[in-house]
Design a protein around this nucleic acid. Structure first.
Lengths: 125, 125
DNA sequence: CAGCATCCTAGCAGATACTG
DNA sequence: CAGTATCTGCTAGGATGCTG
């Protein structure tokens, strides 16, 4: 008998927390957006996502693959050729993340203005 | 003459990166969701968001306030009383974040299954 | 090309104590 | 109550070198 799991990221020990953290991680969000534009190879992703190290990209992709968000297709050739794409679930998560992105673009002026106002207030005080 | 800023989080040095990271940070996402349900005081938030330390909550709230996402209202009384709420911009960002959350709930079985399958494949290999 | 293994460090983050 | 200040540890994350 399995107990019913109520998934709540507000609970410290909920297994959904790590998943949420993968989806919203620094590199995770960028990778999802890039893959939403289509399949990419490892080094293509690396070039698209500015500043990501090899190690962190590999780590990020593995976490997202394990979570069922990213699909990894290995072509058995030499030199190696690996294609990364979004699963159906990944398209859903990436689309949600894209919502945040779009907001960042649309409202960038508001973010920037708020920051200036905040710093101004602090400097004055 | 100001140059036109093209905001691109894919660029290493784009000022939008820190903002994106605040919005998608471990505690940032949880705080936004809680505040979407209404105004909260500091220690109310602390209780709602499981596992967050005083320090990290303060830090998170300050970053979100500076970004124009969270509004901080100080009532000049003793003992202190501070109300945190979302700005209009914050409601927008929090709603986007909520999209990710809802997905996590709706599709939790798929995430869990994917993880098991992945671990199974690895153990086998 | 697509990684993994190793080493190393900055700074993220927790615990504790104190203050207006 | 709502924070700061300080100390410290841990680990995310970068650099480098190697492999199938």
């Amino acid at each position: 008998m399995e107990s019913v799991h109520v998934v709540s990221p507000f609970d410290v020990n909920c297994p959904s927390r790590p998943v949420m953290e993968h989806l919203s991680s620094r590199w995770g969000v960028l990778v999802q957006i890039v893959l939403l534009r289509g399949t990419h190879r490892f080094n293509e992703l690396r070039r698209e996502v500015g500043g990501v190290s090899e190690k962190m990209l590999a780590q990020t992709l593995q976490a997202l693959e394990r979570d069922g968000v990213v699909h990894r297709l290995v072509h058995p050739v030499i030199p190696p050729h690996v294609d990364y794409s979004l699963t159906e679930l990944g398209v859903r998560t990436a689309t949600a993340v894209r919502g945040l992105f779009d907001l960042l673009f649309e409202r960038w002026e508001d973010f920037a203005t708020a920051q200036e106002a905040y710093d101004e207030r602090k400097a004055r005080a």
